[in-house]
Simulated scan of single mutants.
Amino acid sequence: MTHSLRFFSFMALLGFLTTGHSQAQTGPYASTQARHTAVVNAPAAAPVPPMVPAAPTISPDSVFINPEVRPQFVGGDKAFTAYLAKSIRYPQVALQRRVSGRVFVNFILDAKGKVVDAHVISGPGSGLNDEALRLVWMMPPWEPARSNGQPVRVACTVPIAFTADR
Rank of each mutant, 00 (worst) to 15 (best):
G113Y: 04
S87M: 15
F107I: 07
I108V: 13
P60Q: 09
A44K: 14
Q72I: 11
K112L: 12
S62I: 00
P60A: 03
P47W: 00
P67F: 10
A38W: 02
T81H: 13
K78R: 08
Q33N: 03
I65S: 13
P53R: 00
V48K: 10
Y90T: 10
P50F: 00
V63A: 05
R97I: 08
V115H: 03
N66V: 15
Y90L: 10
G75W: 01
L95P: 06
G101F: 03
A85L: 15
A42N: 03
A94R: 03
M51Y: 14
Y90M: 06
I58F: 05
V63G: 06
V52S: 02
V105Y: 01
N41Q: 11
V52E: 03
V99T: 11
Q96N: 15
T57I: 13
D77I: 07
P53L: 01
H36K: 11
R98F: 14
V39N: 09
R98D: 13
R35T: 06
R102F: 09
H36A: 09
H36Y: 08
Q96R: 15
V99C: 03
V39F: 12
V93I: 12
A38T: 03
A55F: 02
K114P: 00
V105C: 05
A42D: 09
P91C: 06
A111Y: 02
V93H: 07
S59P: 04
D61K: 14
R89A: 15
P53W: 00
I65L: 12
V74Y: 04
F73E: 03
N66H: 13
P60M: 08
S100M: 12
P71I: 09
P43G: 07
V40L: 10
V105S: 01
P53F: 00
F107K: 06
A82F: 07
P47V: 00
S31G: 08
T37A: 10
F80N: 01
F64V: 11
A38I: 01
I88C: 08
S59R: 08
V52A: 02
R102H: 08
D77Q: 14
P91Y: 02
T37R: 11
I65G: 12
V39C: 05
F73W: 01
K112C: 01
V39G: 09
G113S: 10
N106V: 15
R70Q: 12
V74K: 11
P67L: 08
H36C: 05
D110E: 01
V103D: 00
V40R: 13
V99M: 09
Q72W: 02
P67Y: 09
D110I: 03
Q33S: 04
T37K: 10
A55Q: 11
K114F: 02
P49V: 02
H36N: 14
L109I: 11
S100I: 00
Q92I: 13
P91F: 02
V74N: 04
Q92L: 12
P53G: 00
P67C: 10
K78Y: 06
Q96E: 15
Q72D: 05
E68N: 07
I58N: 06
Y90V: 09
I58V: 14
S100W: 03
D110Y: 01
L84K: 06
A85Q: 15
I108G: 02
G113F: 04
